[in-house]
Simulated scan of single mutants.
Amino acid sequence: MKIFLKRIRFLFKFHKSIPFLKDFLISKEIKFVTKLIYALLIIGYAAIPFDIIPDFLFIFGIVDDVTIAIFLLERMAKSAPQSLKEKHELFD
């Protein structure tokens, strides 16, 4: 339950994710391979038309997309250097 609440809080901070993504991808503190893997995961999930739950099931179809987006952003935030975490106030 604690993890679920943490992910919900992270979702409400989504507006901070766009600048974070940009800084994450241009940061010299993060290995190129790490940036490439996350970029491919994000682009791949957006480009592949198959979902865990089809989008035509309105609410349920959107929930799996949001869950995967949150999961990827959360993993990126955990692997980010402390300077990026502090700059974007990711874990306060």
Rank of each mutant, 00 (worst) to 15 (best):
I30D: 00
F24Y: 15
L40A: 14
S79T: 11
L21C: 12
F58H: 07
I68C: 08
F20H: 00
R9K: 14
I62S: 07
F32L: 12
P19A: 10
A69R: 03
L57A: 09
I26H: 10
H15M: 08
I48M: 13
L40V: 09
I59R: 12
F71N: 02
F32A: 05
Y38C: 04
L57R: 01
K16M: 09
K16E: 03
F32C: 01
L40M: 12
K78W: 07
I42T: 05
I43R: 03
I48E: 10
H15S: 11
F50R: 07
L25E: 09
F71I: 13
H88C: 09
I8A: 14
A77Q: 12
E86Y: 10
L11N: 02
L72K: 02
P49Y: 05
P81E: 08
G61W: 03
M76F: 01
A69C: 12
M76E: 06
I68T: 05
I42D: 03
S27W: 09
V63F: 12
A39Y: 11
S83Y: 07
I59K: 12
S83E: 10
F50M: 13
S27I: 09
Y45R: 10
A77E: 11
L11Y: 12
K87S: 01
K78L: 10
I37H: 03
H15I: 13
F58Y: 12
Y38T: 03
I52L: 15
I18G: 02
K78A: 00
K78R: 08
K13R: 13
I53Y: 04
F20I: 06
D65K: 15
I53L: 10
I68N: 02
K78T: 01
K31L: 13
M76D: 00
F60A: 09
A77H: 04
I42V: 14
I42H: 05
L36R: 01
D51P: 04
S27A: 14
T34D: 08
L25W: 12
F58M: 11
F32E: 05
H88M: 10
K22H: 11
K78S: 01
E89C: 10
A69G: 14
P54E: 07
G61D: 01
F14T: 03
A80M: 07
F71E: 03
L57V: 14
V66C: 08
S83P: 00
F14C: 09
I62V: 13
P54R: 08
K85Q: 13
F60K: 06
K35I: 03
A46I: 15
A39G: 06
F14Q: 05
A47Y: 06
I62K: 10
V63M: 13
V33G: 04
F12W: 15
F20M: 08
I42M: 10
I70W: 00
V33S: 06
L73T: 00
K16D: 03
A77Y: 08
S83M: 02
I43S: 01
E89V: 05
A69H: 02
P19G: 10
P19M: 14
I53M: 07
R9M: 09
A80S: 13
I62D: 00
I18D: 00
R9V: 07
